[in-house]
Design a protein around this nucleic acid. Structure first.
Lengths: 153, 153
DNA sequence: CACACATATTTCGTGTTGAAAATATTCGCA
DNA sequence: TGCGAATATTTTCAACACGAAATATGTGTG
């Protein structure tokens, strides 16, 4: 199997494992992986607008809108409209949201985290480097493709 | 940012780039990334049942059923029921499917592929190793979680 | 043979995802 | 002031993904 096929296969395995974990989270916390990610991002940023959450999570605004809808339905966050800019919606954690985060759910398997941290520091760095390089190469490829369809300004 | 957060962030960036590319494919070939993957898998295996395609692609059978539905709608594959086992459905490439594959669509960005292949062989190996290790660690973590919820037989 | 069990696929329900379009609001400029 | 451009969010739409349940078929045992 060549490099391309191996990478593709590994990426599919990663996606699959992530998805399976997301459904396990749903059973345990009534919350999926992306919902946990956004909830944590809200906690990190504090009263953040949708757009900021989307950017920080590498998701589109419509996606985050849907996730926030479901978090709001469970009253883990609330939408706040301020008078400074009435287009913006700020997402705030509720008390229930804080309680849930205190249970420390993670979008990644606890077992994965353990194994990763058990590796020597150099190994950990190698892995992070590799993931980062793959991400960067893909993003660069995407931006090039974008430009080639709009050759001149 | 710690190792965990960096990995998570890189994985989300990879997922996002992959998804964006899938939509670009749709414009160019009227086919998404997963559809291309399955079409290629059909070409590789030749008259494969749904289950075999699902396993090879790390997808669930219901997911592949949907993808095959859409490929069939475009007449790129056809479902064949044999008399040996009438539960099974074998998926076969049509002439149109072969023609489309001849245009060499890829579920990964062409630009990404180029960059990957331009790297020194050792770098390529590092990246494949890292991706494979992440996948393996996640799958192992998932299988452990599975077992802990069914402690005894 | 009949009935329980196993296997292959599909259907259904819910959640995730992004592009395009719709909506609401703000900003810049004449 | 007024009006067009820019910005923030939501809606709509199609695809993807999985688990559970439904359906159809095959297998094995009494």
């Amino acid at each position: 199997m060549n490099v391309e096929e191996m990478s593709l296969s590994a990426l599919r395995r990663i996606t699959h494992a992530t998805d399976v974990h997301s459904r396990a989270l749903l059973r345990e916390y009534q919350l999926t992986g992306p919902q946990v990610s956004i909830l944590k991002e809200v906690a990190r940023q504090g009263e953040a607008p949708i757009g900021a959450l989307a950017k920080a999570s590498y998701l589109g605004a419509p996606t985050v809108t849907g996730i926030v809808d479901r978090l709001e339905r469970q009253e883990l966050v609330s939408r706040i409209r301020t008078d400074v800019d009435r287009r913006q919606v700020r997402i705030a954690l509720t008390a229930a949201g804080k309680r849930l985060l205190a249970r420390d759910p993670s979008p990644l398997h606890a077992g994965f985290r353990e194994q990763l941290l058990k590796l020597p520091k150099t190994e950990q760095r190698h892995i992070c480097d590799a993931l980062d390089r793959v991400a960067t190469m893909m993003e660069f490829a995407a931006s090039e493709a974008q430009q080639s369809s709009t050759p001149r300004t």
